[in-house]
Design a protein around this nucleic acid. Structure first.
Lengths: 238, 238
DNA sequence: CCAGGAGAGATTGACATACAAGAATACCTG
DNA sequence: CAGGTATTCTTGTATGTCAATCTCTCCTGG
């Protein structure tokens, strides 16, 4: 009954059969809700510290509480909401410690991935495509496109290994990664010019079959990114 | 109302891995159900290929369907059940490919963990405790204790890094790891004698502060374990 | 007799509702 | 003003229901 615009990016034409129109389209109502709330958190439409009760989602989206509950639980799993038993879920504010930990985890998974790819001297096609998209977006200057392409690049490297579990582990932290990217893009997009070059270096090392170099380029890239993010996080923190 | 014995192993003593690492006893009905079904899958009381419908859990445990549904969903996340939309969940049979992928993922996370520990030349107390328990259990010969101590050792190494996200990623695959351990212990427990020594070598390298050695010892250990598991998996497969 | 398709049964997705239990907060009393 | 109690908010669990989808059987036709 609540037919507001929150759904529109996902659910606009209320036809249920529309779900499978696109490969990326949510497969179920719960998925749609999850994607919508996830995006709102990442876009900081829902700000850190903000409470997200099941009842709120119920009224805002016009879904049943079990649906809202499932959504909250999934967001908690990927770290985009935090709550303990019987307490209200809140949008987390990533502390410096969280950010350090997040980049450590990223480096663990992604460097393993690029090493695997380098051993095969193989660059997954989606990674090349994301790199091209990033170069285009960088000259354009659309922050959202830049972030999307950046995320897509890193995700494509991990997915390209065809390791189901590595991909699942990466997805577990991808939401928080996007959160830091949004934080970054909102403030200091200028220094993003260096990102395409850093990505290119990673791809070159992979194609050269140089495992150690690929891992090193990736580590350097993430350390640089971490430094940029931490500088901003410290500003916005007391 | 349904008060059968399926519950008993749960309510008495808390199980090892929960979503909240510090939860000693199941905090809720859903948690208890999850732990019980999880253990039944790992103990192969629920065999690979077996169907686990929500209705089945509902009747077997006397819980409501939403509770059973949540349980199934959580087990799917950690890979102990597999299902796609509108299809019934089944206990997975780990293929050789799955096992290779699983050990690759383990090695990624765990070697990162031991390298961190080695940099600090610090062995977490729970890891030492698990190692002592393993040595005791090995001489005793109780398979379940051996497996539990082995798992606890590896989990303690990752948790000891105090990296929340590394731990979460590790927990994501820990269920499948236990599945392979059960497979192994059931058949070839004799060669387990070598495990305490391999673990000891890892701890020694950590204490020596030798990052590369610690990573190398861990990799060797996992490769040996993988070889043992794969040999069994190929036997039990067509 | 076998292959393909339609239909019935089984199973999950989602909703509405209700009640109980735990947490947080406000309020009232000393 | 302080401390404890009580109300209220929120989540955990349960029951029932309907719709959508998948599976499997059975029936028909070649």
């Amino acid at each position: 009954m609540n037919d507001n615009e929150l759904w529109s990016p996902i659910w606009h034409n209320g036809s249920v059969s529309n779900r499978q129109a696109f490969a990326l389209a949510p497969a179920s109502l719960t998925d749609a809700l999850y994607e919508s709330v996830r995006r709102r958190i990442i876009n900081e439409e829902l700000k850190p510290g903000e409470k997200v009760t099941e009842a709120r989602l119920t009224s805002e989206y016009g879904v049943a509480r079990p649906t809202a509950k499932a959504c909250v639980e999934r967001l908690v799993v990927v770290g985009l909401l935090r709550r303990s038993a019987h307490k209200t879920a809140v949008v987390p504010e990533l502390s410096q410690r969280d950010i350090v930990d997040l980049f450590l985890s990223r480096e663990t998974v992604e460097s393993a991935a690029v090493r695997i790819l380098a051993r095969e001297a193989r660059v997954p096609e989606p990674a090349s495509r994301a790199q091209r998209a990033l170069e285009t977006a960088t000259s354009g200057g659309n922050y959202e496109e830049i972030v999307a392409a950046d995320i897509a690049f890193h995700a494509a490297l991990v997915r390209g290994t065809a390791s189901e579990r590595l991909s699942r582990m990466h997805e577990l932290i991808l939401g928080e990664v996007e959160l830091t990217m949004g934080l970054f893009s909102a403030h200091k997009a200028a220094s993003r010019e260096s990102i395409p070059a850093e990505h290119a270096a990673i791809l070159a090392a992979i194609l050269a079959g140089d495992e150690d170099a690929a891992g090193a380029r990736l580590s350097e890239h993430l350390h640089a990114a971490r430094t940029r993010v931490l500088a901003l996080a410290s500003n916005s923190q007391s």
